[in-house]
Simulated scan of single mutants.
Amino acid sequence: MPIGSRARRGFSVLVLSSVLLAGCGDDGSDDAQAAFEDELEAMAGVDDAKVEREAFDTEYYGEEIVVDMASDATADEVTAVLDALRRRERASEGAPQDSKVTLGAGTTSRAGDDFAPDAAPGIFGSTRDHAANERMAELLLAAVTALPDHNVVVVSPTEWSVFGAAEGSDPRAALADDIDAIRSEPLLADSVQGDLSVTAGDRKASFGWYEGLTPDLLEAWHGVAAAFDHEAVRSVTFAGTAIWIITRLPEDVPPKQLTTQAYGDQLWPLVREQVEVLAGLDEHATLEITNEYAFDDDGYQEDRFVRLELGRDARPDRQGRTWIDEAKAYLDQVLATR
């Protein structure tokens, strides 16, 4: 069966508990940690494991667990490891686990960026029960099979993310191919929540769904993605009821200088286009457009010069500019014609 088949490439599975509790009970001892490490290493598909005590504070501690599995580990083998981590958490009186399970990594180091296009795919989230662990493992392998050159991160039995990279400077075509691949796999297509991001050069497209990957949502995404026709646009994110766009003008433009009078010719077509998309979304949908400027060691400074929410009055601009007022007036005009 496709879901139970072996993965085509290495991937990582991460399990993180967010509740910090004092103590680890009897299983907090060095001997108990060593015994659990041996237990993990003896499991099918596991190449190496590391279990160490991790202090969160002077009175709060848990365990750091890293398991490296073979690159051809199956969904059943991944599920078994997740089940073992869940049993360990229960035996440790609920002490927090900072756990990472990788496939084909060749190391038990914690180093690495788990949310980059070239990072290993995996599962991120607390394990709950066998059925949930099984579903997450199957979902991960289905995504790795459908999108073999991407970083897949599963956070629940119905929620997952994909990070990919594309050539050139326009991520839209690659993202469209990814959507087609997702829709062709029933397990992925039926998932309730998902996020898909593709980076092309210094531009990034992100598309998320929280009530299913519906035709209406896809149609709205095409309108949002049209923002990439504007050269200043660096990032476009659409999450069903929210549009986030980041621009970067050829020259650094601080907020006081980014006025409609000075930059309306460059940015107003983009603003107007996205206001029209906003008008077709559900109640309380939002539009935010931010300009980046003045790069330093901490990254770019950000100037959010447009923020609108359907059904609510627009807040005044702190810099005294008219972007928001003019965008709101245009939104009211568009809504009046519908």
Rank of each mutant, 00 (worst) to 15 (best):
Ala327Met: 07
Phe305Met: 06
Pro316Thr: 10
Val334Gly: 01
Asp317Trp: 08
Ile324Phe: 00
Ala314Lys: 06
Gln319His: 15
Gln333Leu: 09
Pro316His: 14
Gln301Ala: 06
Val334Ser: 03
Val306Glu: 12
Glu309Leu: 10
Asp317Arg: 08
Phe295Thr: 01
Ile324Arg: 03
Phe295Ala: 02
Asp317Ala: 14
Trp323Glu: 04
Arg312Gly: 07
Gly311Ser: 11
Ala314Glu: 13
Val334Ala: 01
Val306Cys: 15
Pro316Phe: 08
Glu302Gly: 10
Asp303Leu: 02
Asp303Trp: 04
Leu308Gln: 02
Ala329Leu: 06
Gly311Asn: 07
Glu326Phe: 03
Leu308Lys: 02
Leu335Asp: 08
Gly311Pro: 09
Tyr330Arg: 05
Trp323Ala: 05
Gly311Met: 14
Ala329Ile: 01
Ala327Asn: 04
Gly299Asp: 05
Ala336Met: 02
Arg307Ser: 12
Ile324Thr: 14
Leu335Tyr: 05
Glu302Ile: 05
Phe305His: 07
Ile324Cys: 06
Asp325Thr: 05
Ala327Thr: 10
Thr322Ile: 10
Ala314Asp: 11
Gln333Asp: 09
Ala327Cys: 09
Leu310Met: 13
Tyr330Leu: 07
Glu309Lys: 13
Ala314Tyr: 04
Asp313His: 08
Val306Lys: 11
Arg318Cys: 03
Gly311Arg: 10
Lys328Tyr: 15
Arg312Asp: 13
Asp325Glu: 12
Arg321Ser: 13
Arg307Trp: 10
Arg304Gln: 15
Glu302Tyr: 15
Asp298Leu: 14
Pro316Asn: 11
Glu292His: 05
Ala314Trp: 05
Phe305Thr: 02
Val306Asn: 12
Leu308Asp: 00
Gln301Lys: 12
Arg307Tyr: 15
Ala294His: 03
Asp313Ser: 09
Asp296Leu: 03
Asp317Met: 10
Asp297Gln: 12
Ala314Met: 09
Thr322Pro: 04
Gln301Pro: 04
Gly311Asp: 11
Ala327Val: 11
Gly320Gln: 08
Arg307Ala: 12
Ala336Ser: 04
Gln333Tyr: 03
Asn291His: 00
Asp317Tyr: 07
Ala336Trp: 03
Val306Tyr: 06
Glu326Arg: 02
Gln333Ile: 03
Asp296Glu: 05
Tyr300Gln: 03
Phe305Pro: 04
Gly311Ile: 14
Gly299Trp: 06
Leu335Gly: 08
Asp297Phe: 14
Ala314Leu: 12
Leu310Asn: 07
Pro316Val: 10
Val306Gly: 11
Leu310Arg: 15
Phe295Cys: 00
Asp297Cys: 07
Asp317Asn: 13
Arg318Leu: 11
Trp323Leu: 02
Lys328Gln: 12
Arg304Thr: 14
Arg307Ile: 09
Gln301Val: 06
Arg318Trp: 08
Glu292Tyr: 01
Ala294Tyr: 08
Val334Gln: 01
Arg307Glu: 14
